[in-house]
Design a protein around this nucleic acid. Structure first.
Length: 542
RNA sequence: GGGCCCGUAGUGUAAUGGAUCAUCAUAUAGGCCUCCGGAGCCUAUGAUCCGGGUUCGAAUCCCGGCGGGCUCACCA
């Protein structure tokens, strides 16, 4: 839980002593004021409203000034107050906003891609959103675990295994020959393969550890390569849960027992009816399906965590609805379960498919982005050593890839374009990193600053201070809505106001050196706090 | 075909009922370094898919189209 001086809330509370003001009618950081309140819903004489508001607000210590403009109340907060709150927070606690560490434990499940091939940029959207959400909720004081649910028992993975047996069984399994076998299986699908899958599923159901081990080894090879790829963009998933474990430990059979009053049969296949549709739990050969294993998985999650967050592609919306129904309506599931859906990334040539092989992998993207970064750094900073150039290029590549995906609202479809991915100007990670490097560079040059009493702030100083002061509101909103793009857009706003400040307010050697250097130090601290939430790596020199 | 999601300047995006200026970028055309890092700053141009409706007020809500995505498996 975030702790900060929430003046918006205080203002609403105060106004509510006279008029009912809905939280929705209060907005921060509008173009008209620091806090703006809509008065449309107040049913009173305009002159009376004016007088009442005046009487309430004139005594509020945090207000610098306010105006009533038509049906709006615009309030400006005292700049010195905002400055002091930031300064005090950093002096005393080293952090702004502060957090109250409560006992809430959260589990963020993300990525969970079938380990049947290298991770492509569409799936990477899942990883980036999931990892950022984990960082954001951790920042609000929760204890967070991230988890990858590994499919090692579904059809796709069995195909992967059979593909290797059929086409590459004389070779050591590698990501390349496994993917090749997997694609070949889909191109040569016939009844015998289906039968083999069925046989393998039955072995799983019996808990045949030898078979499971063999398939996990194969899946594990692909899984490790996915982890390696994700590591490059600083996504490190903390725990891995194998789907087969719920079959082996009997959890899936227990789910069947728990649901027995709701289960119907069609031959030997079992299903539940919901909204006139059949949700199958087992096949007619008695083997379990993804749905029942996912129920078992969620019951397992609820045993350890208060808040469960699943990051899923939009193709899982229906599944999530069904899952919620079974968990909540049939099984008295009481952990807080939240789904985060994201839309797919497509290519200009159409949608991606691992089976068909028309994908841009994360490795492709990373490699090209690093290459481009090296080129740009060499061009702009020819004096840097190769080692330094490389260090910067890697930071830029990882940050850029993450930022380009994070900045777009997750429920909008995206089209991947190389020209945009490799553009480092404007709304980009390097723009953010560059501002930080500038700030750092000034700090290095600051010498003997004498502390003086601060009074006046010009518009550039004020705007930057205000944007830093308002950070908790954006952080809270990103947390409540599970939306990393809110942090991304906040960072752009913050950096924009820093750049305005930078061009208009000289620091070194000016009369304002003390005040401005304090502002820059705060800026660095806010950046150090906010940028890593999205995996942006800030460097002192770029 | 049924259900769900999306449609905003040439391009990418913000705003999910509120301000006669619909955000921020990019692209295009100009301008700003004897001065803390020009990967920056300033100015100009340019957009709510179409048609109805609800409302004091609609990019936002409702209805009908159009376009794109997802889904409707004994796949995951």
């Amino acid at each position: 839980m975030l702790l900060f001086d929430d003046y918006k809330k205080q203002l609403i509370t105060k106004l509510n002593t006279v008029y009912k003001i809905d939280d929705k009618d209060a907005e921060i950081n509008t173009e008209h004021g620091d806090i703006s309140i809509r008065l449309f819903r107040i049913n009173d004489d305009q002159e009376k409203i004016r007088n009442n508001l005046y009487n309430i607000l004139k005594r509020e210590a945090y207000i610098e000034r306010f105006e009533i403009n038509g049906k709006y109340l615009n309030v400006w907060l005292k700049t010195k107050l905002m400055f002091d709150i930031l300064d005090d927070a950093f002096q005393r606690l080293g952090i702004y906003p502060d957090v109250f560490q409560d006992a809430e434990k959260a589990l963020v499940e993300h990525t969970s891609a079938n380990p049947t091939g290298p991770i492509h940029i569409g799936r990477t959207r899942n990883s980036i959103i999931g990892d950022s959400i984990a960082r954001i909720i951790e920042r609000t004081g929760m204890r967070v675990m991230t988890q990858y649910y590994v499919n090692d028992s579904g059809k796709q993975v069995l195909y992967l295994y059979i593909g290797h047996e059929k086409f590459h069984n004389t070779e050591e399994p590698t990501v390349e020959n496994l993917l090749d076998g997997y694609q070949k299986i889909y191109n040569n699908m016939d009844d015998s393969i289906e039968k083999e899958v069925s046989e393998l599923s039955k072995l799983y159901e019996k808990g045949d550890t030898e078979t499971i081990k063999k398939i996990q080894d194969i899946a594990g090879i692909v899984l490790s390569s996915i982890m390696e790829s994700l590591k490059k963009i600083d996504v490190n998933i903390m725990s891995y849960v194998w789907e087969s474990s719920f079959i082996v430990n009997g959890a899936t059979s227990r789910v069947m027992t728990m649901l027995e009053n709701n289960i119907k049969s069609e031959g030997n296949a079992k299903y539940i009816e919901y909204n006139g549709k059949k949700i199958y739990l087992t096949r007619s050969d008695g083997t379990s399906l993804y749905f029942v294993r996912d129920i078992a998985y969620h019951l397992y999650k609820a045993g350890d965590y208060d808040v469960i967050i699943d990051v899923l592609g939009e193709d899982h919306k229906e599944h999530a609805k069904n899952l919620s129904y079974v968990l909540k309506d049939l099984l008295n599931f009481n952990a807080l379960l939240r789904f985060v859906f994201y839309d797919f990334i497509s290519l200009e040539t159409g949608k991606m498919s691992t089976r068909k092989g028309n994908i841009v992998t994360l490795d492709d993207l990373y490699e090209k982005t690093v290459e481009e970064s090296i080129k740009v750094v060499r061009e702009k900073r020819p004096e840097y050593t190769n080692e330094k150039t490389m260090e910067i290029a890697l930071a830029i590549a990882s940050s850029s890839i993450r930022f380009n995906i994070s900045k777009v609202n997750q429920n909008k479809p995206m089209t991947f374009r190389w020209s945009e991915a490799l553009n480092f100007e404007g709304d980009s990670a390097p723009y953010i990193m560059y501002a930080y490097a500038r700030a750092k560079s000034i700090v290095k040059k600051i010498k003997n600053i004498k502390s003086i009493e601060l009074k006046d702030f010009n518009e550039y100083e004020r705007s930057l201070i205000k944007n830093m002061f308002l950070y908790p509101y954006y952080l809270r909103s990103a947390y409540e809505n599970l939306r990393p793009d809110i942090i991304a857009n906040y960072l752009l706003t913050l950096v924009k106001s820093f750049n305005d400040f930078y061009t208009n307010c000289p620091v070194i050697g000016s009369n304002e050196e003390y005040k401005r250097s304090k502002i820059i130090e705060m800026f660095i601290k806010i950046m150090d706090d906010a940028a890593p939430l999205l995996g942006i790596k800030l460097l002192d020199e770029i």
